[in-house]
Amino acid sequence: MAQQQETRSEPVDEFVDDTQDCEEREQAHRSRGTARPITVVGNPVLHRECQEVTEFGDDLATLIDDMFASQRAAEGVGLAANQIGVDLKVFVYDCPDDDGVRHVGVVCNPVLDELPAGERVLDDSNEGCLSVPTAYASLPRPDVAVVRGQDAEGKPIAVRGTGYFARCLQHETDHLYGYLYLDRLSKRERKDALKQMAEGTPRYETVPND
């Protein structure tokens, strides 16, 4: 958790506007990308902190395109790089907030702000994960989240989310530090979620754990 609070980029005063031209931007990424299978709980890449993004070039752009394609194929609202087996701190999202406003974007090297208690309320809605297919559990998270990092070109950015979108930002940032939402559940709740997963059938291609 301490590493998530470190700041590695210059502060930015304004939050990105990720609500404009969402369909066009998402479709452009997806049309260039190739959907990849999703890693699932137990795969080592999901259970360790990812490497910092240090090169902001064509390889990263291709990865981001593939992530958008993979996210759409799996019908997800957020996807971290390690969920397609890539050990880098980058996530993409295509997620509505509680007002139904669509947000589309990418964050590299994300760091969650520690918001004052007075600025947030815990929301205990259900949470699911593409890497824990077919399973859901109630998980309290702050209903407001601010993530700071870099965009695909390495420029400093900040993203603010509320409600469902706030949950997405926290969930994806967790992934890049080696945490699944299962790790925030009680032993009983975790066992129940894994049972749901074992009894379900993923609707998208996954990477088998050897």
Results as ranks from 00 to 15, higher is better:
Gly163Pro: 07
His175Ile: 06
Arg190Tyr: 05
Gly85Leu: 00
Glu189Pro: 05
Leu194Asp: 11
Glu75Gly: 13
Ser9Gly: 12
Gln150Asn: 06
Glu26Trp: 08
Ala145Lys: 01
Val16Trp: 00
Lys89Pro: 08
Val12Tyr: 08
Tyr136Leu: 13
Thr54Cys: 01
Leu180Glu: 02
Ile157Trp: 04
Leu182Ser: 02
Asp66Ala: 14
Gln71Gly: 14
Leu169Trp: 03
Glu23Ile: 07
Ala81Phe: 10
Asp143Cys: 03
Ala135Lys: 07
Arg30Gln: 12
Val92Thr: 00
Val144Lys: 15
Tyr136Lys: 11
Ala81Ile: 09
Tyr179Thr: 09
Lys89Leu: 03
Ala81Met: 09
Arg167Glu: 09
Ser186Leu: 04
Asp151Asn: 05
Val207Ile: 14
Pro96Arg: 14
Glu26Val: 12
Thr201Ile: 14
Thr173Glu: 00
Ala117Leu: 12
Asn82Thr: 13
Arg120Ile: 13
Gln83Leu: 08
Gly128Leu: 02
Leu130Ser: 09
Val77Asn: 08
Arg36Glu: 12
Pro140Met: 04
Cys108Val: 00
Val53Arg: 02
Cys50Val: 06
His171Ala: 05
Val41Gly: 14
Arg148His: 06
Asp65Ile: 03
Tyr177Gln: 10
Asn43Phe: 06
Gln83Val: 07
Val159Ser: 05
Arg190Gly: 09
Phe56Trp: 11
Val104Lys: 00
Cys22Pro: 01
Asn109Glu: 05
Phe56Lys: 00
Tyr136Pro: 03
Glu127Leu: 11
Phe15Ala: 01
Pro202Val: 12
Val147Ala: 02
Ala61Ile: 10
Lys191Ser: 15
Leu60Asn: 02
Val40Pro: 05
Thr62Phe: 04
Ala61Ser: 15
